[in-house]
Design a binder for these strands. Structure first.
Length: 618
RNA sequence: GCCACGGUAGCUCAGCAGGUAGAGCGCGUGCUUGGUAAGCACGAGGUCGCGGGUUCAAAUCCCGCCCGUGGCUCCA
């Protein structure tokens, strides 16, 4: 926004003719004496926040020149980057309203050709221009609100008692203590790179891509397989839960009146794409696309709850440079995003409860148990008071204490949310699953349903990410594996996610043919098996398979050929000192793995099944 | 984004009072046909992150930038 301030003896204007942007106006014009005239150009990207900063400037100048009368005069010629007319009028009206508390404000109509006369006083303060940058401001209104909101911290015990956080006995809850420390005192102890960063590289899962922006990763064949399987799994679970899968654009008009409000909270966090005529921002979640779709749908109470799902590949958030780490925090990430339109708060609570259970279930099947994460519930005080029993009933689901953050008032779109927070090897917490009850966006987007009495009503909307970002799930699995290795176990991924599930190791060349035959049979049974046909010693091949976290290592030599059995090393039952080796038939091995991966998605080996034909990816 | 530290072979790192680069692993070739966490030998492989400056001479000193990690901040 650009403004030009002229302290004047008088200002006089006369309305001549409409432009195509003209706002309705009846009068002819007016003359105002002893006035501060403010010429205003509203620019692209300006928001109410920009406008209120302009108001502060104007107020400041008006007080200095001791003028209690102001003319707000829309004037396009101060800028070459003008906002659309609707925004401009809205912001001018907003400024008029803000200023009229203290001043006699005259707003000249927008979008008309006007003649004016002005007599500028000419003292040193009488002519000032100001540029108020919309994009660069750090603090938007919502952020200011957040600063003013006070948080109260409690622990909700499994016995449904609400205890102030200082009075809770954490002695049996080490992980929860770490999480609470992280949340409240913001204690940071880490002095090294998180373990998953080294692991994601060494296991050829993912790596930094210097040719892209920070926080955009490359995924090697192994990583793509793991990511793909997780994506398939979460998607299946959400569809099974009753969601309609959709796909929506990844970029949206920056000036779109509905989207802008949502954007205001994070002005510096968007990727901006220059279009031919309009500028676009890259989505940071699937909300927009789904809400716009919902707004157009004809819905009645009979259709509710209505669930819509999308896997965002990608969501973009231009996080601050120093916040990015490995797979924990990215600028481009994949997130399952489900929105549920519900009739009323009763239905919202019911869904919230069910989606909480869905999230527990999804994480558990992925390989993250309730003891691997800590629960946080964030809630407004009012909502808590009105729904005490409901909130307490949530504590029953996992029977573990929950951190409650209570706000004295609502400053964002939701009244209630939960998160499951993974606490990693460096005691840092990151949110995985989350569900929120949104009481604001239905109205903003014009999402309505027809109720049983024939009247249109605004529904509530739940936001649900059943697993959290897929990349973050991989991070959690790697950190968990690292933590388990500190407890003397061998680190590994769940079998259904392991890129190679069975490694066949022929002892000498004469066993190779049989090894290939076995691998083929396994692969026909949808088990990812490969063959280490390299010219290496058996010990070396076993070591390589072990350091690649392969769950089943099957050695085949003369003895196995003779007995028609495999000599299988089972990783999850082994330690580095004590390898668990079992003789079993091929059929038994197939049965064991099939049982272990039952109900999970499958994809074939991500690379050639002969190790000698496989490149090292880094 | 701010502060600190780091970037040298494909990988992990050594070298740095300024004098044109080293190890281990990996890779290639040969020997070896092996029995459960690293066989042996030989060989190839380097714009020392990028750009500028100081100097007879810069991987090494100075400045700027890029990337990474930690802290601050932040996480819709």
């Amino acid at each position: 926004m650009k403004i030009l301030l002229l302290h004047s003896d008088y200002m006089e204007y006369e309305v001549k003719k409409k432009t195509r942007f003209a706002e309705p106006f009846e009068g002819k014009g007016e003359r105002v004496e002893e006035v501060l005239v403010v010429f205003v150009s509203v620019e692209k990207g300006d928001t109410e926040e920009t406008a209120s900063r302009a108001v502060d400037e104007i107020r400041d100048v008006a007080e200095k020149v001791k003028s209690d009368r102001i003319v707000l005069y829309p004037y396009a010629h101060l800028s070459s980057e003008l906002a659309d007319a609707e925004t401009a009028v809205n912001l001018l009206k907003f400024m008029e309203k803000e200023l009229s508390n203290e001043f006699d404000v005259h707003r000249s109509p927008f979008g008309w050709y006007k003649a004016f006369k002005i007599s500028c006083k000419g003292h040193p303060l009488s002519e000032l221009s100001r540029e108020i940058k919309g994009e660069d401001i750090e603090l938007t209104q919502a952020l200011k609100d957040e600063e003013r909101a006070v948080s109260y911290w409690y622990i909700l015990t499994p016995e449904k008692e609400l205890v102030e956080v200082d009075r809770f006995d954490f002695s049996r809850y080490d992980n929860l203590r770490k999480f609470v420390d992280y949340e409240i005192s913001k204690r940071r102890a880490a002095d090294r790179t998180p373990p998953h960063v080294e692991l994601m590289k060494r296991l050829e899962i993912a790596d930094y891509e210097e040719a892209s922006d920070s926080g955009h990763m490359r995924y090697y064949p192994n990583g793509r397989l793991i990511k793909s399987l997780l994506e398939m799994f979460v998607t299946e679970k959400c569809i099974e839960y009753g969601a309609m899968e959709v796909e929506t654009p990844i970029m949206y008009d920056r000036g779109h009146p509905t989207l802008r409000k949502y954007l205001e909270r994070f002005p510096a966090r968007q990727y901006i794409i220059k279009g031919d005529k309009r500028d676009f921002f890259l989505r940071f979640a699937a909300c927009f696309g789904q809400f716009l779709m919902n707004a157009q749908a004809t819905m009645t109470y009979k259709h509710l709850p209505l669930r819509m799902y999308e896997l965002t590949r990608y969501s973009f958030r231009k996080e601050q440079r120093g916040e990015l780490v490995g797979l924990r925090r990215l600028r481009a990430f994949t997130m399952p995003d489900m929105h549920t339109v519900v009739r009323d708060m009763e239905e919202a609570k019911q869904e919230f409860y069910n989606q909480y259970r869905l999230s527990v279930d999804v994480l558990r099947e992925i390989g993250l148990e309730p003891e691997d994460y800590e629960v946080a519930i964030r809630i407004t005080k009012d909502f808590y008071k009105e729904n005490r029993d409901f909130i307490h009933s949530i504590a029953e689901i996992l029977k573990k204490p929950i951190l409650i953050e209570m706000w004295d008032r609502r400053f964002f779109y939701f009244v209630l949310k939960f998160e499951f927070n993974f606490v990693d090897a460096l005691d840092k917490a990151s949110a995985l699953s989350t569900v929120q009850i949104d009481v604001e966006n239905a109205e903003r987007y014009g999402i309505r349903y027809v109720d049983s009495d024939g009247k249109e009503r605004y529904p509530y909307i739940l936001h649900c990410s059943a697993s959290g970002a897929i990349e973050r799930v991989i991070y959690a699995l790697l950190e968990k594996a690292f933590l388990s290795s500190k407890n003397g176990m061998l680190p590994m991924l769940p079998v259904w996610l392991s890129p190679t599930q069975v490694r066949i190791i022929p002892i000498a060349e004469r066993h190779l043919e049989k090894a290939i035959e076995i691998a083929n049979e396994l692969n026909r049974n949808r088990i990812r098996a490969d063959v280490d046909d390299r010219d290496e010693t058996t010990a070396k091949k076993v070591r390589d398979a072990s350091t690649s976290w392969i769950p089943y290592i099957a050695v085949i030599g003369d003895r196995e050929m003779e007995e028609n059995l495999l000599s299988v090393t089972v990783r999850k039952e082994s330690t580095i000192k004590n390898q668990k080796k079992i003789k079993m038939s091929l059929k038994e091995l197939i049965d064991v793995i099939k049982k272990e991966t039952e109900g999970k998605p499958y994809k074939p080996l991500p690379m050639h099944f002969m190790l000698s034909r496989r490149p090292s990816m880094r």
